[in-house]
């Protein structure tokens, strides 16, 4: 009996000793956040391997000399600051990104309203059709635009000539070449804004509009006092996201103009490619590609802080 009691006590002690350990691990594994973390691990590994590492590697490359044998600190950046062509690229990138994002947001906003007021039956069809440019691979879409804007056989010029007008050098003249690359970017990106704004529009409570209507508000007042404030966060986030992506654009300029005429359509990515891959100066190319990183970083911090404050205020 005594032996049996002692044995039971020993077993109980062993259980109580092993219990909390196994139980802790068990509890941790059963925690939803742990499962979520484990499920996210492959994605985190991808982000780390394909985004974080290349970003840091690019930062390291940007601080090496041309032959990549010597550390030069910020020497590549100070060199770029003295180059007229580089400042032209900065200026062109800003024109390209800001103008394109403005028109993408504007057109997306208008399209979202148009689709929103369509009867539910036909809405899905229109939504699908309007999304086509965004779904299509950008390189393919840009090639189609290139045929439309071709220096010698432009389809647009064919129509203009048929109407009695004169050829436009879409890709050969600085103004028209900038116009063309921005146009294609707006064509590609506006559907993204449309779909985001449409989702935001659908989440605005109908009662607000009804109340405003009772108060005698006209369409403009409803837009200004209800729609825009309710969509402010989504507008901020889409503009920020699009600005980052547009600043990093490569395909459109590369396919349409290759930076020409006279380097007047080069943007950061194409100029970085021309320097890094074309001319074999990888560190300088990396420095060009990283130039906007701190500016966009600060911009992102302010926008996201605004979004969070508004979300807190509403919540």
């Amino acid at each position: 009996m005594a032996d049996g009691t002692a044995a039971l006590a020993q077993t109980g002690a062993a259980r109580s000793a092993a219990g909390p350990r196994r139980g802790g691990l068990h509890r941790m594994m059963r925690r939803q956040s742990t499962t979520a973390f484990l499920l996210c691990l492959p994605l985190l590994a991808l982000v780390l391997g394909l985004m974080i590492f290349p970003a840091f590697y690019a930062g390291w490359l940007a601080m090496l000399n041309k032959s990549m044998e010597r550390f030069v600190g910020l020497g590549n950046f100070t060199f770029l600051f003295r180059r007229e062509t580089f400042w032209n690229v900065v200026w062109q990138s800003c024109i390209f990104a800001i103008t394109a994002v403005f028109f993408k947001a504007l057109i997306g906003f208008i399209l979202a309203h148009l689709v929103h007021v369509l009867p539910a039956k036909g809405q899905r069809k229109w939504r699908g059709m309007l999304l086509v440019p965004w779904v299509m691979p950008l390189a393919i879409g840009t090639l189609a635009w290139w045929w439309l804007l071709d220096p010698s056989y432009s389809a647009f010029n064919w129509v203009i000539r048929a109407a009695g007008g004169e050829n436009i050098a879409w890709l050969g003249d600085t103004f028209w070449a900038r116009f063309s690359v921005i146009l294609v970017n707006v064509w590609y990106g506006a559907p993204f804004f449309m779909i985001m704004y449409l989702a935001a529009l659908k989440s605005v409570p109908e009662q607000l509009y009804e109340a405003a209507a009772i108060d005698g508000a006209n369409a403009w007042q409803k837009l200004w006092h209800i729609t825009l404030p309710m969509m402010r966060n989504i507008i901020s986030i889409t503009v920020l996201f699009s600005l980052i992506v547009t600043f990093a654009n490569f395909d459109i300029v590369r396919i349409l103009t290759n930076g020409g005429p006279r380097d007047t359509t080069h943007i950061f990515a194409t100029y970085s490619f021309a320097l890094g891959i074309g001319s074999g100066d990888i560190p300088l190319g990396a420095a060009v590609s990283l130039f906007m990183f701190p500016i966009l970083g600060v911009f992102a911090i302010f926008i996201l802080r605004g979004v969070r404050r508004r979300a807190d205020a509403m919540g």
């Binding site: 071709d150 220096p151 010698s152 056989y153 050829n167 050098a169 879409w170 890709l171 050969g172 070449a177 103009t257 290759n258 020409g260 005429p261």
Partner: peptide, 21 residues
């Protein structure tokens, strides 16, 4: 020369020739 030559790529001259222009 045609005014558009500043925007030509490596295929533009081939096309202009093959088209008989």
């Amino acid at each position: 020369l045609p005014s558009d030559v500043f925007a030509w790529d490596d295929a533009s001259n081939n096309r202009a020739y093959i088209a008989g222009r």
